[in-house]
Design a protein around this nucleic acid. Structure first.
Lengths: 224, 224
DNA sequence: ACCTGAACACCGTTCAAGT
DNA sequence: ACCTGAACACCGTTCAAGT
């Protein structure tokens, strides 16, 4: 069997199988040979559809970005920018939490991934419409992404080890034993995310008001 | 030459060589064979000092965490918690920016890395001394880490590609061409970091005041 | 166009053997 | 205790060959 009359593979099938493998067994489990075997073909076949393995993982990451809800940025939605940002952040984080093993790939900037760029574009556009100057709108998109991907990647729940002996209280006087319980760790992740998100939105609201005030009460001198 | 009278290797020498290799050529360039060659020994020798390759990379990451300045958390410093957090964040990010290739390893939670844990411990302790309830202090340490590692990892400057054709304006109506210039991208990273850090600190200050008010003006009913 | 097996130049890790 | 070479079971990718 050299070339079948109907192609055995497609980019979509490959991405689907790769995603399942990443979710089930982690990034390290994905080898071209293993993935090909999962698809019932031989390793080199993949190279008819992707230039290399990194492109496959990029596509897996982008499929996750495509799951992020962006409807809160619709003009017809009527929510203010703070609520839109909040709902977006929650949806974004939830999408990443469903596929934690691919987050290290996804977190490395939007790169040339279409869905990742669409996410950035939607947030930026909504902030500009809400009255943010374009430069600030760009910053907001980026800093929200920093916080959200950072929280998905640096999760306390996944970052600690289930071995109390690794954490000698003499070395870390303040980190109580309580932090080390798995339940407590997940609580920390949620609390930190909610606290951070609230702080970010409150802080941005302050900057937004200051911008308004500068514009209306004491308008900047016009220069061209 | 089987066993030399003076050991050829040490954990420190290995970490030093691995760090240099990671910085110069990236994570992918680090193989046990390549690293051993760099040190003038054969591959398996490394296993006398580290259990496996991951432990070596963990040690490289931890060496970076050890570079983070923590002196702003000293009791004698006299700065308030907001300025301490600010200076810490800036120093933390600068340390990561000097070794960008190891950030994906470092960002995955503090795990069992001693220096990473010391950083978390210092921030937590300082927040508690400043009057934050322990639960909130934990959240602050975690959320600051999310934001800082996220910004080091998801940098716009490193995430985009130097190929304008990859970004069709028809697909991303709001992302102007200006974002694609290398200079502009670095500016975005700095602006986003500063804007986000300011928002976080302002937002946390608001929560701090609310906590104070709840405590003094309308004290919570004592139970136990 | 799309799949194959063979091949190349690598991997991480184990282990018996040497001193 | 600490290094070695040999070996095992893998890798990612290229390429000529097949239809």
């Amino acid at each position: 069997m050299a070339r079948p009359r109907k192609p055995l593979l497609s980019r979509d099938r490959i991405v689907e199988a790769a995603s399942a493998l990443v979710d089930a067994e982690g990034l390290d489990a994905v080898s071209t040979r293993r993935l090909a075997a999962e698809l019932g073909v031989s390793g080199p076949s993949l190279y008819n559809h992707f230039r290399n393995k990194d492109e496959i993982l990029d596509a897996v990451a982008d499929a996750v970005s495509a799951q992020v809800d962006l409807s809160m940025f619709d003009e017809s939605d009527g929510r203010d920018w703070q609520h839109a940002l909040h709902d977006w952040a929650v949806s974004y984080r939830a999408a990443l939490a469903e596929h934690p093993h691919i987050v290290p790939v996804l977190a490395q900037g939007p790169g040339r991934r279409p869905a990742g760029l669409r996410v950035a574009d939607a947030a930026f556009g909504a902030m500009v419409r809400a009255g943010w100057p374009p430069a600030q709108a760009t910053y907001i998109g980026a800093l929200m992404r920093y916080f959200i991907t950072g929280s998905a990647l640096g999760s306390f729940a996944r970052g600690f080890v289930d071995d109390e002996t690794a954490y000698d209280p003499a070395d870390y006087p303040h980190l109580g034993q309580a932090h080390l319980l798995a339940d407590r760790r997940q609580q920390v992740d949620e609390g930190a995310f909610e606290t951070g998100l609230r702080a970010l939105l409150d802080g941005l609201a302050l900057q937004y008001e200051q911008g308004r005030a500068a514009h209306t009460v004491r308008p900047a001198p016009k220069r061209s």
